[in-house]
Nucleic acid binder design. Structure first.
Lengths: 185, 185
DNA sequence: CCGGTTTTCTAGCAGTGCTAGGATCGGGTC
DNA sequence: GACCCGATCCTAGCACTGCTAGAAAACCGG
């Protein structure tokens, strides 16, 4: 019986290896460089092994993204509540800045994750909750507060992506952030 | 002499043909379906002809995006000034909704356009100006107004992309828009 | 040591963006 | 009208992609 346990453990370990290899490769050379062959070479197995763990390349990207959501939620939750929206917004930008490829996997690449549904994984919701809790509730009801959080999230996401792809000037990034905090905070 | 003129005209016409073919194909079947072979078949030429017009596939996408910026700027400028931010925001969303693939080319795909620089093409600036002019200037100076416009644009972009990729629920889209207008209007 | 199962790899498929080289066409000149 | 030459275009191919069938190898229980 302990044999199958060891095998399962080894498999899980190799799966982590694939995910981290994909992430590292994407972060260093971009997602275009993450091919099944290069990935296989990195984990020192042949390509078909990848497909015994994941349905396809998309599934690997999805797994990486899922890791990202967990880390993002943790980074946002770790902020001082007294800092309010400024802290959360700052943490959000710092995360996107430090992990551009990871952020891409989470928010721009085509992945298959159940957002905003009954069975949404906890990490996907946690980030949203962190943003919502950083807002001054005032006299808003739950629905409106949720919508406001979604709006703030949208603004943050827009700032990140437009900035990184060169569609917004870098030098006014700080000013945009300050405005966001003053408008929504 | 008129011979070379005719040739130039024909070439320009074929270039338009390539751009519209790429756009139509992307809009109907997604950008993944836009391959050089399919594109060549559609314009009834061989693939190498594409490379006599564009440096590569990216350049074709860029050309499509450039068209999009012109159209977006026109759509935003056509709004009633009295409608204020609401009109512009509404037009922005309608444009993104009606031309999802075009919007992708403009804002999420990797293209090579000089945003926010000295030699930025007019259409790229026009859209930004339309958003800025829809904001109540109040007592803000030019810099702050520009940053605010960038922030609004970011929010709109975030709303569009997160909504379309299923990362934000569709049913609260109207509420988010209303909030955006009330917060920034 | 051996049989059977599971795991892994080799080899290949269809498709991608892109390009070198030869074929083909068209306009200007005799 | 016949010819030549330069511009234009297409055939064929390269190296690469994600993915998979079938052979090979490794492993475990008896």
């Amino acid at each position: 019986m302990s044999v199958v346990e060891r095998k399962a453990r080894d498999r899980a370990q190799r799966e982590r290896l694939i995910i981290t290899a994909a992430r590292e490769l994407a972060e260093s050379d971009g997602w275009d460089a993450v091919t099944t062959r290069r990935l296989a070479e990195r984990i020192e197995y042949s390509q078909p092994v990848l497909y015994s763990h994941f349905a396809g390349k998309d599934a690997i990207v999805t797994a990486v993204a899922l890791d990202g959501f967990t880390e993002l939620a943790a980074a946002l939750a770790a902020q001082d509540p007294d800092a309010g929206l400024a802290g959360v917004a700052q943490a959000y930008l710092a995360f996107a800045d430090a992990n551009p490829a990871l952020y891409d996997a989470m928010f721009t690449m085509r992945i298959d994750l159940p957002f905003g549904q009954r069975d949404t994984p906890a990490p996907l919701q946690a980030g949203f909750v962190a943003i919502r809790d950083a807002l001054v509730s005032g006299d808003r009801d739950a629905d409106e507060l949720a919508a406001l959080a979604e709006l703030v999230w949208s603004a943050l996401h827009g700032i990140v992506t437009l900035h990184r792809t060169g569609r917004l000037p870098a030098e006014s990034q700080a000013q945009r952030m300050a405005l966001l905090v003053s408008v929504f905070g």
